[in-house]
Simulated assay, not measured.
Amino acid sequence: MDIAALITWVITALGGFYMLGTWMSRGGARGGSRLPVPVVFGHFALAAIGLVVWIVYVVADKDALAWTAFGLLVPVALLGFAMLARWLPVYRARAAEAAAGEQSQPAERYFPVPVVVGHGLFAVVTVVLVLLTALGIGDS
């Protein structure tokens, strides 16, 4: 199960990297973003650190590392939900903005919906797999 969690974590990270790149290339905080910079980069940094801890866990098989990775995922998930809550109104308003001909759009307006949904779904699966692994459920 630890390898499955690693795979889902990497897939989640790829989606996150794509959205971060899109956000930055579209102006990020300078582009009128509704996503606070500390939240964006805090989410990214904690997720990346957690992924490194998880890779070390897969190699070393130390229970404390599994729990550390899970502990890092909790604030990552909370920050992710906070960003989702701030992104949803931007997504809903994009049709109205296009009809009104507004030129100024926040950077996160350009996130593809399938990437956002996939990132979230893989993140949930990752959290569950990491927790189950830390609990010792599914060990062979």
Rank of each mutant, 00 (worst) to 15 (best):
G32R: 11
G80H: 09
V115G: 08
I55R: 10
T12A: 13
T126D: 05
I49L: 13
P114F: 12
T133M: 03
A134Q: 06
F70I: 01
L131G: 04
M83G: 06
A48H: 09
E108H: 11
R26I: 03
P114N: 13
W67K: 05
E102V: 12
Y18Q: 03
L35I: 14
I137R: 10
A69V: 00
K62H: 12
G101I: 01
T133V: 07
F41N: 03
S33D: 05
G27D: 07
G80I: 10
V130T: 13
P36C: 02
L129R: 09
T68L: 15
L20R: 03
A77Q: 04
S104K: 14
P106Y: 02
W54K: 04
G42L: 05
V37K: 15
M19S: 07
L79Y: 06
A93L: 11
W87S: 13
E102M: 11
V53W: 02
A64W: 09
F44L: 11
F122N: 12
L132I: 00
E97M: 11
L73Y: 11
T12S: 13
V90H: 12
V90K: 12
V116G: 11
F17D: 02
P114Q: 13
T8S: 15
A69W: 07
G120Q: 08
V113R: 04
V59Q: 04
A69Q: 04
Y110N: 14
E102T: 14
M24G: 01
V125F: 14
D61W: 07
A82S: 15
A100T: 00
P114E: 13
L121Q: 08
A4E: 01
V53A: 05
I49N: 05
L132F: 11
P114Y: 13
W9E: 06
D61I: 08
G31I: 01
R109V: 11
V115R: 08
G101N: 04
V74H: 09
I7Y: 02
L46F: 07
A29W: 04
S104W: 06
M1A: 03
A107P: 00
S104N: 14
I3Q: 09
P112T: 05
F122H: 01
G71C: 05
Q103K: 13
V125H: 00
